[in-house]
Design a protein around this nucleic acid. Sequence first.
DNA 1: GAGTGGTCTAGACCACCCT
DNA 2: GGGTGGTCTAGACCACTCC
Lengths: 240, 240
Amino acid sequence: MLEIKHLDNSTINGWLDVQAEVLRRLNARIWKPGDLLPNEAELAAEFGCARSTVNRALQSIADEGLLDRRRRGGTRVVVHPDRKATFNIPVIKVQIEQQGLAYGYRLLNRRWLRPPKNIRERMQLDAGIKLLNVRSLHTADQRAYVLENRWIDVSVVPAATTADFKVQSPNEWLVENVPFSGGDIALTAIHANEDESIALECDTHVALFSAERRTRDAIGATITYVQLVYAPGYRMTIDL
Amino acid sequence: MLEIKHLDNSTINGWLDVQAEVLRRLNARIWKPGDLLPNEAELAAEFGCARSTVNRALQSIADEGLLDRRRRGGTRVVVHPDRKATFNIPVIKVQIEQQGLAYGYRLLNRRWLRPPKNIRERMQLDAGIKLLNVRSLHTADQRAYVLENRWIDVSVVPAATTADFKVQSPNEWLVENVPFSGGDIALTAIHANEDESIALECDTHVALFSAERRTRDAIGATITYVQLVYAPGYRMTIDL
DNA sequence: GAGTGGTCTAGACCACCCT
DNA sequence: GGGTGGTCTAGACCACTCC
């Protein structure tokens, strides 16, 4: 999140100060939504710093979505700035241990299956392909924490063929063995089905928090699709 | 013709090329998790560019969480890189209209209340304080989309006293009238209570997706707390 | 065509932290 | 102490795009 400091121009010393001062002016509506800011050279002169310092400051604010910058068009105050939230998705093991709880892991099953239609569609796969399906449970202080139901396309990740996932979860294994890649997440509320109620030790139909994640490699092939179903009462928190 | 170049750095032109090359090496495990990279000056010499260009590239990768950079300590490959996700939180009206649906809004009630204990705790307020409570419904193509239950501390946002929220939702009003600020979000799965089932036209106990947001001003005072309860089946999606 | 931001360079100084 | 990244400067060229 961006912080706003109060200061006068004589104390401007570094791009963070420029950032703070610009934010202050946006905040105070000195520059209103839709307004055009002075250009970088003018601001540099006003603040008594180099243009590149102003550039860095304005870029950082534009990255937050508050300014819109265009060559030739100048820098404008965005009218309806979306709030932007960034959050980390830690490895489940780390997430649990950060809370000071004892992490545990249990493999439920590992098998080759033709994925059901809905999974196939999400992974954009042809019919008939078999995938590695791994179901496992992560526990915190011996209590069910999250159920991991993962589908891996081994034609994209051949190394997964030999991983047995008996002591290391697919979650952790993939982070270590598959490089940086893109994807998307979908968060929903679901009703516990029978499998989930057994694994998570709750009644069926209880409301559960579910996170589905699709991970793609550098050329866009779907590596893995996972549904994480959390134990009742789970809260996913994000700082803005 | 196909050629495996040893490393033709003559093609490196701007910081994006440096970034790409470094990512390639991380990907190819040329620099493995935990490894120390050459320092910026050495990389600059290798790539034939200025140190600041290397700096920019490495910073961008560090921002993604893949590298850990320290003065004196150098640049290291992070062992368990957290996946970082950034998502926009659009104004609900915009979110609905972006899907090509007709946005509608209905104020359910607007009243002064002493907030229940759980709300008071979330907002870190003293007992006895009255807040402006606004309940409203956002619809998409005439169908219930999300129920907004908002608490506003008018001692922090005096202007809210005179807003009637009859045609403009608190969600939209606040974005336009209160400057950007920090806060946090909690996402959960809940069971529909009676109010929610009526407003969202579903049975009680149905699993619903809930997003609670706390918004603070520049000095840390809680401006507003809102719970958004979405109609059954809602999916919140995030790109990585 | 011209004005804007985007970026690069070379050099410099500094803050931080320590295999 | 000394090496590292963090940042600033001044100048330069370029890409984009608005008029």
